[in-house]
């Protein structure tokens, strides 16, 4: 395996559509890391992945993989990565056996035995047309292909969307197994954050085409907290620490990014631990409020 520090470095990617834009998207996936790329539907996850893979053109920015410029070394780098799309890109009239022949010629390190062992493990019939597969089987077939050419980096776009819980769990276990030797890396977009609680080392949140944060999962979960208190108690907290506030009939729910600091100023308060879903929801709410405030200011001007 080649020595490199980061599997992916995305630097200030910009891309514009009439109603949407990627706004200087930057994040890094270190080697040996599972990076969860989270955000709501339409937040820009798929567009970012398509931009990174040069499936679509970008306006500006830089993508590096394995410490090399991706656009300059696209073919060589693509031999070392595997991509799993949310919907199968394989034509319905092909079979798994056909894919073995096709990929065998395209990927220098394609391993037929590994591929067939995955087919067996997933209970995929090699001679059945892909069109006849269930959604779960199609995803498993994509994974089988992705894992059969010794790819160092796996890029997955919503791999578990629409799958039943059993299959989802299977997929996650396969990904964990793939990561065992520490030489592989994963970038996985999803809006099902509960999966990332189980497997991700890092998480990047995107909303409206902007990165809100890119951080280690354990740090995020350790530092953030959810306080339920009265409205007037909010003044005791450092405004810099407040991510977002929700008001309900009993008072407020406030997410803070430094739970220890909050515990010092509000020792009587119960500060609940949060999960990635809470973090995602509160950050997106905060971002929306900021955007609304900004557009309000612009309207006033």
């Amino acid at each position: 395996m080649e020595r490199y520090e980061n599997a992916i470095e995305v630097k200030e990617i910009t891309k514009s559509y009439p109603a949407f834009c990627l706004n200087q998207v930057s994040f890094t996936v270190p080697k040996g890391c599972i990076m969860g790329f989270i955000g709501q539907n339409g937040a820009g996850k798929t567009t970012t992945l398509r931009s990174i893979l040069h499936i679509t053109n970008i306006k500006s920015g830089e993508v590096r993989m394995f410490d090399q410029d991706f656009f300059e070394n696209e073919i060589e780098i693509k031999k070392r990565i595997a991509v799993v799309f949310d919907e199968t890109p394989f034509h319905g009239s092909l079979t798994a056996r056909d894919l073995n022949v096709i990929f065998g010629g395209i990927y220098p390190e394609w391993n037929k035995d590994t591929f067939y062992s995955y087919l067996q493990y997933f209970e995929i019939r090699e001679d059945q047309k892909i069109a006849a597969y269930s959604k779960g089987l199609k995803m498993k077939l994509q994974l089988a292909c992705a894992l059969s050419h010794n790819a160092e980096l796996l890029i997955l776009d919503e791999p578990t969307a629409g799958l039943d819980p059993v299959v989802r769990e299977e997929v996650l276990q396969i990904l964990l197994k793939y990561m065992e030797d520490g030489e592989h890396s994963i970038l996985m977009s999803t809006h099902i954050t509960s999966e990332l609680d189980k497997i991700a080392d890092m998480v990047t949140l995107i909303d409206h085409g902007s990165i809100l944060f890119s951080e280690r999962v354990d740090t995020l979960l350790e530092q953030h907290g959810l306080i339920k208190c009265a409205q007037e108690d909010l003044n005791r907290l450092d405004p810099e620490d407040i991510i977002s506030v929700r008001t309900n009939r009993f008072g407020v729910e406030v997410m803070v990014k430094d739970r220890e600091k909050a515990a010092n100023v509000m020792p009587e308060a119960i500060i609940d631990r949060v999960n990635l879903e809470d973090i995602m929801v509160f950050y997106v709410e905060r971002f929306r409020k900021e955007r609304a405030d900004e557009s309000g200011k612009l309207t006033t001007l």
Partner: peptide
């Protein structure tokens, strides 16, 4: 060349009925 052959194989399969 191997890649070209693989792609040709794929194209042939996909366009066979047509």
């Amino acid at each position: 060349m191997k890649a070209v052959n693989s792609l040709r194989y794929k194209e042939k399969l996909l366009t066979k009925p047509e």
